[in-house]
């Protein structure tokens, strides 16, 4: 397994998967990310990140049911694995830790 450290975008994608719960497939993730972050998110980038997350074992996927939309192609739904959840928590903890030790005045003046 490659390193379990999460990149910033990887973290966002993983969080989006968690948010969308049972509707987390590539296009939806893309849209949601665009909506929340306000940046333009390319499908290709999301795809490669999803692929990487799956390779790292942080997310898992399964094919859904075939519908008449999407040219009859099935969607691939993603879900966060335990390892993914752990990685997310670890990242959050790390941040909280920092926030807890930053003196109040340090960021106030900026």
């Amino acid at each position: 397994m490659k390193g379990t450290n999460l990149g910033e975008f990887e973290e966002l994608v993983l969080l989006t998967i968690a948010t969308l719960v049972s509707d987390a497939y590539s296009v939806a993730i893309c849209d949601d990310l665009e909506k929340r972050t306000g940046r333009s998110v390319k499908l290709g980038v999301v795809h490669s990140v999803l692929n990487r997350l799956e390779e790292k074992g942080l997310a898992k996927s399964k094919l859904g049911e075939a519908t008449s939309a999407r040219g009859g192609k099935r969607k691939r739904y993603y879900a966060v694995t335990n390892a993914g959840k752990a990685a997310l928590l670890k990242a959050k903890d790390l941040r909280d830790q920092y926030w807890s030790v930053i003196p109040e005045f340090a960021l106030k003046s900026i």
């Binding site: 497939y25 499908l43 094919l63 939309a69 999407r70 192609k73 969607k75």
Partner: peptide, 14 residues
């Protein structure tokens, strides 16, 4: 990967 990808591209296309 093909099916999923094809589907995504199709969705975007529509």
């Amino acid at each position: 990967l093909l099916e999923d990808l094809e589907g995504d591209l199709n969705e975007y296309f529509q």
